[in-house]
Design a protein around this nucleic acid. Structure first.
Lengths: 156, 156
DNA sequence: CAAAAAACAGAATATTATTCTTAAAATACC
DNA sequence: GGTATTTTAAGAATAATATTCTGTTTTTTG
């Protein structure tokens, strides 16, 4: 069931595609790609931002350059009741934690985190995760190699 | 063992932080934040881009607005030899597939994908994944709720 | 230490962003 | 269907920023 009324037209979708590809494209270039006047595309982008369809813009930084070589996925089981996301919020507040998903199945949450290596990973678990009293168990999956890592959502 | 020589100074790191937060910040505002002249920050950003520390810039689109409500993580086991990433490349080429990680453990790959719902998920498995002959098994984890999803890497 | 390279600052120039106004298109209402 | 209203687009004018260039300062190298 649709939560949000879908009223994006094909031009809006094209704008989203182009901005996912290059958030720093000039408005003039964007207008050129869409065969529109710059003031019209500017207004469209403004609207997409204001209404929350575009939540922001981010630089894609190569993790190797900033000493964050190790990517891990951590499955966490907590004592939280289903209506309570206190642990999730605590997890989300940890800087190394990039993603917190409430998942179906035995475990409660799937965490994606980036650290510099095993040392920081152990420190993360000992000093940050273990402070969250509702955590019952943790299971870590180590990423050996990343073939694709994109925040790009495919727009039909 | 460091693969890349780390020679980013504190100003470079500050630039990366600011651009992760808002990729569309004007160079003038960036320079203002760093108490530098705009031409100096422009040159710095150019260099970070050229050398690959910044791989690009992306708009963060709210998936709900583009009918991609369902987020799944799929564990895939393949017959690939360790030196062969053919399946991974085929998986990475599928538009709905956002991430492909080679992981340690029983399964070979962890996939992150976004689809509109169970129907598209089944279609993805039947029509795209099953075309990859080396896939032995698939195990899907459904995300019920996302508490945090950021591409933001914490820079110390 | 001297020379070379890298980084910075500031001015000038080019380009783009933004605002405003008007026109056109789409939607809503009767 | 016709009319009124709203939304969207286009284009001109203005403001702001991006970019280039030059000279100076700082850092690195031998």
């Amino acid at each position: 069931m649709r939560v949000k009324e879908i009223n994006l037209d094909e031009t809006d979708l094209a704008i989203l595609r182009l901005l996912q590809e290059d958030a720093r494209i000039t408005n003039v270039a964007l207008a050129g790609q869409l065969k529109m006047a710059p003031s019209a595309t500017l207004e469209r982008v403004r609207k997409l931002e204001e209404k929350g369809m575009i939540k922001g813009y981010s630089a894609i930084v190569d993790p190797l350059w900033i000493d964050k070589d190790l990517l891990v996925f951590i499955f966490i089981k907590t004592k939280d009741s289903f209506a309570d996301d206190k642990s999730a919020r605590l997890l989300a507040a940890i800087p190394q934690v990039m993603e917190v998903h409430h998942i179906a199945g035995d475990d409660c949450y799937l965490i994606k985190a980036r650290v510099s290596g095993p040392t920081e990973l152990m420190e993360l678990k000992r000093s940050r995760f273990s402070k969250i009293s509702n955590i019952i168990s943790m299971r870590t999956t180590i990423v050996l190699e990343t073939v694709k890592e994109s925040s790009h959502i495919s727009i039909d």
